[in-house]
């Protein structure tokens, strides 16, 4: 488990210890070079931090910059450590705690979206019900034959979780998810 989640018991952490670990979304801007993702995730495993979700892709092709979005969990003090540790990695340009920024701008949390592909197989009533529910969730059918559907659904993590849960009794076969992509509201960049 995360050693940093049960810190020290030091007198200096008394106020902060009462702070419960909570999910934070980090955006990490890195040079897209070999091994950079291994450096980032190696830091998380090596120092005992958790990763709930990880999304990465090159976002600025001319500058070869990739944006890594990590959902992790920790007390404010642990989050501060994670941020500083990430900033020590040589090809890391910037680390922004999107959750903290969202709060500073008066929002509950950053805009977070995930995409999932969901395969459901079945016939008769189950098949009709699956299609009806998919419609209600605004999931689109991207592949089908008489025995299955593949749905594409985009939305908040909770929506995706819910959709997967209700598809389970209707013949859920497999799921593939992208992990969370996040931006903050408003005209400012990260």
């Amino acid at each position: 488990m995360n050693a940093q989640l049960q810190p020290t018991g030091s007198a200096y952490f008394i106020e902060r210890e009462t702070a419960k670990p909570e999910a934070h979304t980090l955006s990490v801007l890195v040079d897209n070079e070999p091994g950079v993702l291994a450096r980032v995730i190696g830091l998380f495993s090596g120092r005992g931090y958790n990763i709930d979700s990880l999304t990465v892709s090159e976002t600025e092709h001319e500058k070869h910059l990739s944006r890594i979005t990590i959902v992790t969990r920790g007390t404010p003090q642990v989050m501060e450590q994670i941020k500083h540790q990430l900033e020590r990695i040589v090809p890391v340009h910037r680390v922004v705690d999107m959750t903290v920024v969202a709060r500073e701008r008066g929002h509950d949390r950053p805009l977070e979206r995930e995409l999932a592909l969901v395969k459901v197989a079945g016939t008769g009533d189950h098949r009709v019900e699956a299609l009806r529910l998919a419609d209600a969730f605004r999931a689109s059918v991207i592949d089908a034959n008489t025995e299955h559907f593949i749905f594409e659904i985009t939305g908040r993590v909770s929506k995706i979780e819910q959709f997967i849960a209700i598809m389970k009794p209707l013949g859920l076969i497999e799921v593939c998810r992208t992990g969370v992509a996040a931006l903050n509201r408003g005209p400012e960049g990260m």
């Binding site: 020290t8 030091s10 200096y12 902060r16 003090q77 450590q81 500083h84 540790q85 020590r88």
Partner: peptide, 11 residues
């Protein structure tokens, strides 16, 4: 010189 040393073990 290393920001990660600050507040790591002691506030």
């Amino acid at each position: 010189i290393d920001p990660s040393s600050i507040n790591k073990n002691v506030r």
